Simulated scan of single mutants.
Amino acid sequence: MGNKEQTFRKIIEIAYVMFAENGFEKTSLAMIATEVGISKPAIYYYFQSKDQLIAFIFDELYKEIQHDVAVDYKELSSANFKEELLKLGYKSIEAQDKDPYFNKIFNQYVLLAARDENYKRQLVELETSFLTSFVAILRYGVQLGVLEDTPHIEAKAQMLALVYDNIGNFMLTGNQLNYRAIWKEAVNSVIQGGKNDKKK
């Protein structure tokens, strides 16, 4: 990796932490440049404005969230469906443990979306995609015969998505809960409940 690439990645990493801890408003490019160890004029070689840097990090987060809930359906079977669904949540919990800044900076984008229609639109698209991913996973569970095809299957998927999302929010506050057990209970309620549901 060349020096320019190293500096670029360092800018992103430091901006990510500073935006998460201090917010967008209270973090300037000059502050980021100082932490990186370059001059303020030098940072403009990489990003023409703070808004451009904020947008770049958002795009990275957008891709990461979509990747986190992506499932390789070729690897799913009736035998491992529940296990893979559990892994989906466990992976998120472990990632949150390793990166305490993720939800903090994401909340900054939620605040930004309140006054910026572009970010608002993108967050709505991301949220819709997030919910749709869980619906698709459970519908595949129906195809595998793990779940009954009931009118409640979409609500079950949305419940899982909400639990998945809110675990991260609770971890952000520092609450020491057994998040793996919570996710397991949520998955069990969907799998076991799905077997007992009657078609209506």
Rank of each mutant, 00 (worst) to 15 (best):
K91R: 15
L172Y: 07
D68W: 02
P100V: 10
L88R: 14
K82W: 02
S129M: 10
I137H: 04
F81N: 06
G174R: 12
Y119R: 06
I105W: 05
L61A: 04
K98G: 03
I93A: 02
M159I: 07
F134D: 00
K104G: 13
I65M: 12
S77M: 06
Y179A: 06
S92V: 05
E117G: 04
L162E: 12
K156I: 01
L112W: 03
S78Y: 05
N103S: 09
K74I: 03
G89P: 07
L111D: 11
S92K: 15
N107C: 10
N107I: 11
K104L: 15
L144F: 08
E75S: 15
E148I: 11
D149H: 05
K74L: 09
D59F: 08
Q143N: 11
V146D: 01
A157H: 04
L162D: 14
E60N: 11
N107L: 14
S77E: 08
L147H: 00
M159N: 11
R121G: 00
I57V: 09
V135Q: 11
F56V: 07
Q122G: 01
I191Y: 05
S133Q: 14
D72L: 04
G145T: 08
I57W: 02
V146L: 07
E148C: 10
K195Q: 15
N107R: 12
Y140A: 05
D165G: 00
Y90C: 02
W183N: 01
V187G: 00
L131R: 07
Q158N: 13
Q122C: 06
Q122H: 14
K156Y: 11
V146F: 10
H152R: 13
V187R: 00
